[in-house]
Design a protein around this nucleic acid. Structure first.
Lengths: 172, 172
DNA sequence: AATGAAATCGACCAGCA
DNA sequence: TGCTGGTCGATTTCATT
């Protein structure tokens, strides 16, 4: 079964440390974790399973270098939609289905969607934009090229604010 | 050593299939991969190592559910900087160091940076914005709340456009 | 680049606090 | 519920092709 997490999980310090390790590198051996967290290998394994069952860990993935595929062109594309066109859920899905579109944000305010588009060159970028415009309900687009991108940190846990951690430590 | 990939890697069909599997789920067993790709387990393993050495696979990570940490508020924050303030690299780094900032895009055009901010509540969001404004060289900010986010697909490989794949298959 | 065998490591289980 | 220790199965490594 896929357990829904609505924020009501209680994690202790050890869990947080564990998550911090595996979020940035899942290849760490049980032994390494065992040493650093001062817990037996079995205990680590037990906690990892629990974190997965609780839905805290949703999966494990290999990170690929976009540059290895020649994907060195990134743009943020703002998309406004005609508001008569019904539900935006379906539109978001259609936008995300366009190949080259990496991420879709559905936003409040004057702009309705923001897309992160990653492609190899200008020609492909043009194709993506044209494909987006052709989608029924899309009004207009405006793109800005990304010169550089920086990840805020190594991930969710490291990125949590102190006050957020406090709340977690308090239990549910 | 960390090998630099500048796009000049040649991947065959098997590599691409392999990457497609492990990018969405690194927990697939060698046996499963061996069956689907019709290759011995050792051969799969050999290729996986090679892909890592070549820098195509940059690492493996556990994906965490932000909701499990109560992180259900997301905003896109546009940041303009005073252009006298020297190099933007340092500024980007400082922005990314603000806890709550998940991603930083350095963009061309009238807006200089776009931040993806993920926090637990409005109060934390305010704190992040204040912290950003306090950074030397930051001029003004404008935030839009994200109501929903959709990943374009299960990742880089699946997301590659057909023409991009063609280029890869051609070798370098 | 791929194979099969040997060594190493991780997954699972029964039992315990 | 969380942990231990041991067993089995999977993965990693290596000599060989």
């Amino acid at each position: 079964m896929s357990k829904q997490t609505t924020g009501d999980v209680d994690l202790d310090e050890t869990d947080l440390e564990l998550l911090e390790y595996i979020e940035s590198d899942f290849d760490v051996s049980l032994e390494t974790l065992s040493d650093h967290l001062e817990l037996s290998k079995s205990a680590i394994h037990y906690r990892l399973n629990k974190l997965r069952e609780d839905g805290v860990v949703t999966g494990t993935t290999a990170d690929l270098d976009p540059l290895a595929f020649g994907l060195d062109m990134v743009a943020l594309t703002q998309v406004t939609v005609v508001h008569e066109s019904g539900y935006s859920d379906a539109l978001g899905a259609r936008l995300s289905a366009v190949s080259g579109v990496e991420q879709v944000y559905y936003t409040m305010g004057d702009v309705d969607f923001v897309l992160v588009v990653r492609v190899q060159d200008r020609e492909q970028m043009n194709d993506v934009i044209e494909e987006v415009i052709a989608i029924d309900g899309v009004n207009q687009t405006s793109s800005r090229f990304v010169m550089d991108e920086i990840r805020g940190d190594e991930g969710t846990v490291e990125n949590l604010r102190e006050d957020a951690l406090e709340a977690l430590r308090g239990g549910d």
